[in-house]
């Protein structure tokens, strides 16, 4: 079996196995899997409203997925996307609220840049600690997530607003809302962010595959020692990778703040987008195009699941189980490739 084929086979088989397991769980709990999945499909693509919601959910997933994937290609595991997304969300909403009477061409990019900058800063800290002190980035980013959660909540309540649980809605000049997209999708919450997400995916592909910087980043991911020997500055590349990854995540937060919700509110727990981004990146094989496709799948699963209890009586948490199992199967790809190679050997005989 050619290597290219295996690269495609693992995610596809993982998704199928995940859905199969979901069907078995539905049967075991006395539900009809066909009705359950039909409801899921209708809830994701049933009409233009649901399609709009799916695309809207896909938007931050693309950014979160790109963030995880970008760091992964440099050999770094950025679990901190969730925290970077939260600070990005806060920063862009803050800029969106604070400035009035700016023209849209300045205000909107400014607000998004603020989100990117905040996320980049949140990514810089683990990157710096990794590069300089060899501290494992996984633990630092997890701790940064919780720090972000409490810090953003504190800012919302005590700095931006006066003890209230949510910020004001961002000014029209910083908003990503699009009357056109809302009209064609029957007034879903789809906003202009979807265009930016696709552009971001192209930028990531170009940056990694077509520039010297991307080449260096990937080289560091493959083999740090060889890269060092070849004269690359490994430490600088590690920091840079985390900063860029954090910036992607931060813009993902801007999408929530300037588009989906229009403000930010006290979060008692995580939004989950950052953690789902890990699943998106893994399933997408850490490539730009893969991330976009995986984000579409997870967006559809998430949005569609809300329709499951209504139409088929299946609790929507079933989809969480399916997603968990998909990650599990992708992570255990050694098993899948091993089975595939066994299968092939038998055929050859």
């Amino acid at each position: 079996m050619s290597k290219k084929w295996t690269v495609l086979a693992v995610p596809v088989i993982s998704v199928l196995l995940g859905l199969l397991a979901g069907a078995i769980i539905m049967i075991a709990s006395g539900n009809n899997p066909a009705a359950g999945y039909m409801a899921l499909w209708n809830g994701a693509f049933g009409d233009s409203f649901y399609t709009g919601e799916t695309l809207r959910q896909m938007t931050p997933y693309i950014f979160a997925g790109l963030a995880v994937a970008f760091a992964f290609r440099t050999g770094l595991f950025n679990i901190g996307v969730e925290g970077q997304l939260l600070v990005g969300w806060l920063a862009s909403v803050w800029v969106g609220v604070a400035f009035v009477d700016l023209p849209k061409v300045i205000h909107l990019p400014l607000a998004i840049s603020a989100g990117a900058l905040a996320g980049a800063l949140w990514g810089f800290i683990p990157g710096f600690l990794k590069a300089r002190l060899r501290v494992h980035e996984v633990i630092v980013t997890i701790m940064m997530n919780y720090t972000a959660l409490h810090v953003t909540n504190h800012f919302i309540r005590n700095v931006i607003s006066d003890g209230s649980d949510a910020t004001d809605v961002v000014n029209e000049t910083a908003s990503l809302r699009s009357p056109f997209l809302e009209n064609i999708t029957d007034f879903s919450s789809l906003h202009n962010g979807i265009y930016l997400a696709v552009i971001a995916a192209i930028i990531m592909w170009f940056m990694l595959e077509k520039t010297t910087l991307g080449y260096e980043l990937r080289a560091v991911g493959y083999n740090q020692h060889a890269s060092e020997y070849a004269g690359m500055n490994v430490n600088r590349n590690i920091i840079l990778s985390m900063v860029i990854s954090g910036a992607f995540a931060g813009i993902g937060g801007s999408m929530q703040g300037l588009g989906t919700f229009g403000n930010m509110f006290i979060n008692s727990g995580f939004s989950g987008i950052g953690f789902d981004g890990i699943a998106v990146a893994l399933l997408g094989g850490n490539t730009a195009i893969g991330v976009v496709l995986a984000a579409l799948l997870f967006g559809a699963l998430k949005v569609g699941s809300l329709n499951m209890p209504i139409e088929s009586g299946v609790p929507n948490e079933l989809v969480e189980i399916v997603i968990a199992l998909i990650i599990f199967f992708v992570a255990s790809s050694y098993m899948i490739t091993w089975l595939l190679s066994r299968f092939k050997k038998k055929e050859a005989k």
Partner: peptide, 21 residues
């Protein structure tokens, strides 16, 4: 031989999904 961090993330998802389900 899965990436142990990834598998751990999957365990977190699974536990939450399964118990709420």
């Amino acid at each position: 031989r899965a990436d142990q961090v990834v598998s751990g993330v999957a365990i977190n998802f699974l536990a939450l999904g399964l118990s709420l389900f």
